[in-house]
Amino acid sequence: MKKGLKIVGRFWIVLILTAFITGFIQYLYRSLGIDYEAYTSIITMGGLVYIFIIDQNKIQFFWSAGENREGLSRKPTILLKITAVLIIGVPVVMHWM
């Protein structure tokens, strides 16, 4: 029962953070004059990759005080951050082409 609540809690945190990050990126694109509506799914995918990094390195440890506290290692974290930036940057590149 307790583990199920942890999973549900993490799900809602990830969902809310993804909505905030996606909304913020769309706000930035709108203020720059970039048509983001055609790329909403790409922006959301980039946000999900970034939230995955945050979840694996930070969020999962909110409920585990003394358990195994090992997140992603440095290389996968850097690779995923670069991937998220590239995915989120697609609308900017497409706008200038």
Results as ranks from 00 to 15, higher is better:
46 G>M: 10
38 A>H: 00
75 K>F: 14
65 A>L: 13
32 L>D: 02
11 F>C: 09
51 I>Q: 03
74 R>H: 05
65 A>K: 13
56 Q>V: 04
77 T>M: 10
52 F>G: 07
66 G>F: 01
30 R>Q: 11
44 T>H: 02
52 F>E: 00
40 T>C: 07
57 N>T: 08
46 G>K: 08
23 G>V: 01
81 K>H: 11
57 N>D: 08
19 A>P: 04
72 L>A: 06
44 T>C: 03
80 L>E: 00
14 V>I: 12
41 S>M: 12
71 G>M: 02
74 R>T: 07
42 I>V: 15
42 I>F: 11
77 T>F: 07
16 I>G: 07
53 I>N: 00
28 L>T: 09
15 L>R: 03
41 S>E: 11
71 G>T: 04
82 I>A: 09
34 I>L: 09
80 L>R: 03
29 Y>S: 00
18 T>S: 11
40 T>V: 12
18 T>L: 05
47 G>N: 02
42 I>T: 15
78 I>Y: 11
40 T>D: 13
71 G>D: 03
32 L>F: 15
62 F>K: 06
22 T>I: 02
12 W>M: 12
67 E>I: 13
75 K>H: 14
29 Y>M: 06
26 Q>T: 15
68 N>G: 10
24 F>P: 06
23 G>S: 03
62 F>W: 14
55 D>W: 15
31 S>C: 07
59 I>Y: 05
21 I>L: 15
50 Y>E: 08
40 T>Y: 12
79 L>R: 10
23 G>M: 00
48 L>Y: 04
49 V>C: 10
34 I>M: 04
23 G>N: 03
55 D>Q: 13
72 L>Q: 05
60 Q>L: 15
36 Y>V: 07
70 E>L: 15
82 I>R: 04
25 I>R: 06
22 T>M: 06
37 E>K: 13
45 M>N: 03
42 I>R: 08
37 E>V: 15
76 P>A: 14
31 S>K: 10
19 A>W: 07
57 N>K: 02
42 I>H: 07
28 L>P: 01
12 W>A: 09
20 F>A: 02
43 I>N: 06
75 K>Q: 12
54 I>L: 13
76 P>Q: 10
46 G>I: 14
11 F>L: 11
17 L>A: 08
32 L>N: 10
72 L>F: 12
61 F>S: 02
27 Y>N: 11
44 T>F: 06
64 S>H: 10
49 V>A: 05
63 W>C: 10
67 E>D: 13
24 F>R: 00
56 Q>W: 01
70 E>S: 15
16 I>D: 00
50 Y>F: 15
25 I>H: 02
41 S>P: 07
63 W>V: 10
81 K>D: 08
48 L>V: 09
77 T>D: 05
19 A>D: 01
43 I>A: 09
28 L>R: 07
21 I>C: 06
69 R>N: 14
53 I>H: 03
28 L>M: 13
61 F>L: 05
14 V>R: 07
62 F>L: 15
61 F>Q: 04
63 W>F: 15
11 F>M: 07
16 I>N: 01
27 Y>P: 03
25 I>A: 11
18 T>F: 03
34 I>W: 03
68 N>S: 09
15 L>P: 04
28 L>I: 14
12 W>L: 14
41 S>G: 05
15 L>E: 00
70 E>P: 06
65 A>N: 07
61 F>T: 01
52 F>R: 02
